[in-house]
């Protein structure tokens, strides 16, 4: 029987905390950037102009239908050669994860917008609103409510996806725990602790999300 000894991890606490900080900070960046890309993707795919629509759909499908691990490696190794720009591992992985998340956010936002009854924007138009006004005042406030649970869900996935940046040697929680595991010869304790750390952050968030969802359902 294996003898667990979690006490050994204490001496690596600063390493873990550092990694955790990078993971959380990275998540914030890719969620925010991803939402920006998602907005562009969603409005692009709903555009009146065919070229804009096609561009947006190409972007969405390209990132939705390829594995994120491949994208990370491609952005770091292939893109610099093709585009002639050097990128740090952090930039490359932030870009890849944001675009990947953005493609899913796009679909969530687009789905939320088109789920609102056409009669709503017609009523806005009949009052004399421009399409922009009716989007801001009538459609989006209703659509955002419907998008929030799915956006939360996607952001949770984004948080977990940051663990993949360790392949590009970005010093996140997983990367630092690899260092700790090699150093201590205690991979079982190390990776168990890492799994617990991810869960400890995400479980309260999912509970909050579920509560928020219920509150929104009540006010419908």
């Amino acid at each position: 029987m294996y003898q667990w000894d979690f006490g050994i991890l204490w001496s690596y606490r600063w390493l873990f905390l550092n990694g955790l900080g990078v993971t959380v900070g990275f998540t914030v960046v890719i969620v925010v950037l991803g939402l920006v890309f998602g907005l562009f993707g969603a409005f692009g795919s709903l555009s009146r102009f065919k070229t804009v629509r096609l561009t947006a759909l190409t972007f969405i499908e390209a990132f939705r239908c390829t594995p994120i691990l491949v994208q990370l490696i491609w952005f770091y190794y292939a893109l610099p050669i093709l585009a002639g720009v050097e990128m740090t591992p952090i930039t490359a992985s932030a870009l890849a994860l944001s675009l990947y998340g953005g493609s899913f956010y796009s679909e969530i936002i687009r789905g939320g917008i088109i789920s609102i009854d056409r009669g709503q924007s017609e009523a806005g138009a009949a009052l004399g609103m421009t399409p922009g006004q009716s989007m801001r005042r009538i459609v989006l406030p209703q659509a955002i409510k419907r998008m929030i649970p799915a956006l939360m869900n996607q952001s949770i996935i984004q948080f977990k996806n940051t663990s993949l940046v360790s392949v590009l040697a970005v010093p996140d929680l997983v990367y630092q725990s690899q260092v700790a595991a090699h150093d201590s010869y205690r991979p079982l304790e190390t990776y168990t602790a890492v799994a617990v750390a991810y869960a400890a952050i995400l479980i309260p968030l999912t509970i909050l999300a579920r509560r928020g969802e219920k509150r929104l359902a009540v006010s419908e």
Binding site: G119, E122, A123, G128, M129, R137, Q142
Partner: peptide
């Protein structure tokens, strides 16, 4: 939009804005 502001329309399915109170619905235009 300017043209439509001068004509009022009432729809079969009301199309009230569900996220606003009655008063806010009427104030919106």
């Amino acid at each position: 939009a300017r043209f439509r502001a001068t004509t009022g329309m009432v729809f079969q399915h009301f199309n009230l804005f569900p996220h606003m109170t009655t008063l806010q619905n009427v104030m919106e235009g």
